[in-house]
């Protein structure tokens, strides 16, 4: 049950988290997952199965742009870079998240009183 709730919460925040970690620079898919895990102190572990669809959807929306580069192992890697449109989207999502978080906190406070 606890895992399900966490999954539901994560589902809505994947876009926000992806855009947040990409604000600092270009990253490839596996790095993005690792960076989210590190920055959340292991609290958020995005499902890798939902990470790539989210990345590709953001690219289709113009929030991200991609480039292929050779990796040190041989095969090329796909790097994601946030665009101006993506930064605007991040701003919007962050505000929504903050407002939502505040409201949820207030509601929880009322309930616990």
């Amino acid at each position: 049950m606890r895992g399900k709730i966490r999954a539901q919460l994560l589902k809505g925040t994947t876009t926000l988290l992806v855009l947040t970690v990409l604000r600092d620079g270009e990253l490839y898919g596996y790095e993005i997952a690792q960076r989210i895990r590190e920055r959340s102190g292991g609290a958020f572990v995005p499902s890798e199965g939902s990470l790539y669809p989210a990345l590709h959807a953001l690219e289709a929306d113009g929030a991200l742009e991609t480039s292929w580069r050779e990796s040190d192992r041989g095969p090329r890697r796909r790097y994601y870079k946030i665009t101006k449109s993506g930064l605007a989207m991040l701003e919007e999502h962050a505000q929504e998240w903050a407002a939502s978080s505040l409201s949820t906190g207030k509601a929880m406070g009322e309930a616990n009183r």
Binding site: G49, S50, Y52, L55, A57
Partner: peptide, 22 residues
């Protein structure tokens, strides 16, 4: 296992690529 079921991943990726705008 972390990537999840292959068919589901394929469907999600297809939906991500095939937007109404495109």
């Amino acid at each position: 296992g972390r990537l999840g079921p292959a068919a589901e991943l394929g469907r999600q990726l297809r939906a991500a690529h095939q937007s109404t705008r495109r």
